[in-house]
Amino acid sequence: MNKHTAFPIIKKTVRSTLSENLNNYTKAQSLTLASELKVETRKSWKKDQLTQVLAESIQKQFSQFYKPVVEDLLSQFGDQVEQALAFQNVEQIEVLAPLINKGFLFVYQQQDRLILVIPDEIWTDLWHDEEVEEVSFEIDSSLLVEAQAEKEKSSDYKILKKWKENAMRIYGHASSVYFSTIWNKYYDEKLTSEQIEDILNR
Rank of each mutant, 00 (worst) to 15 (best):
Q92I: 02
D140R: 14
K151I: 09
G78H: 07
D112I: 03
V135D: 13
L99H: 04
K102T: 00
N101W: 02
V145D: 07
L143R: 14
L114T: 00
Y157V: 04
E134T: 06
A174I: 13
E150F: 09
K102S: 03
V132Y: 04
D129Q: 11
Q80V: 02
V117E: 07
D140T: 10
L144N: 12
D156S: 12
V81G: 04
K161L: 15
Q110W: 13
E121F: 10
M168T: 08
I118W: 14
E150S: 08
E134Q: 12
E133L: 14
Q83M: 12
N89F: 04
Q109A: 03
K161D: 14
I170P: 10
T124C: 08
L143G: 04
E133F: 14
A167Q: 13
K162F: 08
I118T: 10
G78K: 13
D125Q: 13
S142T: 09
V145S: 04
D129Y: 14
L114F: 10
V95P: 02
Q148F: 06
Y108S: 00
W127K: 09
V135M: 12
A97Y: 04
R113F: 15
S141A: 12
K164M: 10
A84P: 09
D112C: 00
S154F: 13
V90N: 05
D129K: 10
N101I: 01
D112Y: 08
E146C: 05
N89C: 06
E121R: 13
E121M: 07
K153A: 11
V107F: 05
R169V: 07
L144K: 12
Y108A: 01
A167T: 05
I118G: 10
S142D: 05
S141E: 07
L105W: 00
V81L: 10
A147W: 07
V135C: 09
G103Q: 01
V117M: 11
E134M: 11
E138K: 15
A174V: 14
W163F: 12
I122D: 06
I93Y: 08
L116C: 03
E82C: 07
F137H: 11
K164H: 11
Q83E: 14
G172E: 15
D112S: 08
E131M: 04
D120S: 13
D79L: 10
S175M: 14
S175H: 15
S75Q: 12
V117Y: 10
I115D: 01
E134P: 02
S155D: 05
F106Y: 05
H173E: 15
A86D: 05
A97E: 02
E134A: 13
L116K: 01
L144E: 03
T124P: 02
K164E: 12
E121Q: 13
I159R: 15
N101D: 03
K102P: 01
E152L: 00
